[in-house]
């Protein structure tokens, strides 16, 4: 199935972009960054769905399947002179 995760590679992410990994069993959340994923060579070529499949929950004794979401880095602007 096509989704945004099959179209974005790790190397497409900004350095400070964080990926939120939520466990489908226990709800525990941990975050991944590009630096963390690219600890080994050539991992920047992984697609995000591959990263999601290989990641497991980090809660002690869980190791459940996780759901990946991407955090928005941009902030919405405050109201500026009726123009925002």
């Amino acid at each position: 199935m096509t989704s945004w995760k099959t179209q974005i590679q790790v190397r497409d992410l900004d350095d400070n972009q964080r990926l939120e990994m939520t466990c489908r069993s226990c709800g525990h959340v941990h975050y991944l960054t590009r630096t963390m994923i690219c600890a080994d060579p050539e991992r920047e070529f992984l697609y995000l769905d591959e990263v999601e499949r290989e990641t497991v929950c980090r809660a002690r004794g869980c190791s459940g399947v996780v759901r990946m979401s991407i955090q928005s880095n941009s902030k919405t602007s405050g109201f500026v002179g009726g123009l925002a």
């Binding site: 959340v29 955090q71 919405t76 405050g78």
Partner: peptide, 9 residues
């Protein structure tokens, strides 16, 4: 808030 979507943290 008006300008930010909170994260899980």
């Amino acid at each position: 808030s008006y300008t930010r979507i909170p994260s899980t943290e």
